[in-house]
């Protein structure tokens, strides 16, 4: 298998469940050794994509390659090189967490016993308890320990932190950084922007089964526009003609608009002429980009969407 093939290469992927189209034209690319974010609101098709990559679902259209192989045809061989953490972890209620870890990690290929012990310690998980008594977070830890203690080249993580408390999320973050440092590839699906921003070099944003944005985080940040809210002495409607000002919204003496960072000097000069009394400028935020793709109405002013940071 070609060693220089990307870890994941998906294009035009389509999948229908009866009459619902879960995916319709999804593109996703993860280079070898990269930590890639896979962002989208609930129901946008993240889990479906990952299940197709795992050969659990058969695609209805488009192509998918993983580690240079066909995820459906070569499933069993491929899975020795891949580890998976599902969004909803279900364990055998009568077996202990430790037994479940043994079973799952053996399925992911070679197991690093020392790493397993370390991870149990880090995640503060008691492996002798029956899985019946585990909370959602503890079940998630079982899947994480199983996946991270394998020597898999590629980690497919489907909203892996949804049940973890903030402390455990930190442990998770450092484990992923470590995996990345070892040269492993990671696909991290999430619906929380901050998590992806913290860990990933690239991000693919999907909505309704379609890729709507993808690229390196740094580049995407550059694409974003600065948000300005300003209160002026004169009539703010006159700002409409200034080159660089877009998405202008007026309320009384206050104007809100977005500006391409490259055109900011000219806009500021024009503003000065209107004797601004109060000015707030927000730096380009990826969260805004993300929220813009989330919201039904793309024309909605970014400032009105406000994310919590």
């Amino acid at each position: 298998m070609a060693s220089n093939a990307p870890a994941i290469e998906v294009s035009g992927l389509a999948k229908n469940f009866g009459r619902t189209a879960a995916l319709s034209g999804l593109d996703l690319r993860v280079e070898t050794g990269q930590v890639a974010g896979f962002l989208g609101p609930n129901g946008s098709g993240k889990s479906t994509t990952i299940r197709i990559l795992l050969g659990l679902l058969k695609a209805d259209g488009g192509t998918a390659r993983m580690l240079g192989a066909d995820p459906w045809q070569d499933a069993v061989a491929l899975h020795r090189r891949v580890a998976y953490v599902p969004g909803e972890v279900n364990l055998w209620p009568n077996l202990t967490g430790g037994q479940a870890i043994s079973i799952l990690s053996k399925l992911h290929g070679e197991v690093d016993e020392r790493r397993r012990a370390e991870l149990l310690d880090l995640f503060d998980l008691d492996p002798t308890k029956k899985a019946r008594s585990y909370s959602k977070g503890n079940r998630q830890k079982v899947a994480l320990v199983a996946a991270l203690s394998s020597r898999a080249e590629l980690l497919l993580l489907d909203e892996p932190t949804s049940g973890l408390d903030p402390l455990m999320e930190q442990v998770f973050t450092s484990c992923i950084r470590e995996a990345a440092a070892q040269g492993r590839s990671v696909l991290l699906s999430s619906h929380i922007f901050a998590e992806v921003e913290k860990l990933c070099e690239t991000v693919t944003i999907i909505r309704d089964g379609r890729t709507v944005e993808s690229g390196r985080l740094a580049e995407l940040r550059h694409l974003q526009r600065t948000q300005v809210t300003v209160e002026v002495a004169g009539n703010p409607a006159e700002l409409a003609g200034v080159p660089g000002i877009e998405e202008l919204q007026l309320s009384g003496a206050t104007a809100s608009f977005s500006v391409d960072p490259d055109l900011l000097p000219g806009v500021l000069a024009a503003l000065a002429a209107h004797s601004p009394r109060n000015l707030v400028s927000a730096p380009p935020s990826l969260e805004d980009l993300f929220l813009r793709h989330y919201s039904e109405d793309p024309a909605l002013p970014v400032s009105a969407r406000g994310g919590e940071r």
Binding site: A75, V76, P86, V89, L91, I103, L104, K106, G109, L156
Partner: peptide
């Protein structure tokens, strides 16, 4: 039904 099969088949099990 419980989703446990999915986790097993995501491993190298035919």
């Amino acid at each position: 039904e419980s989703g446990r099969l999915e986790q097993q088949l995501a491993g190298s099990l035919a």
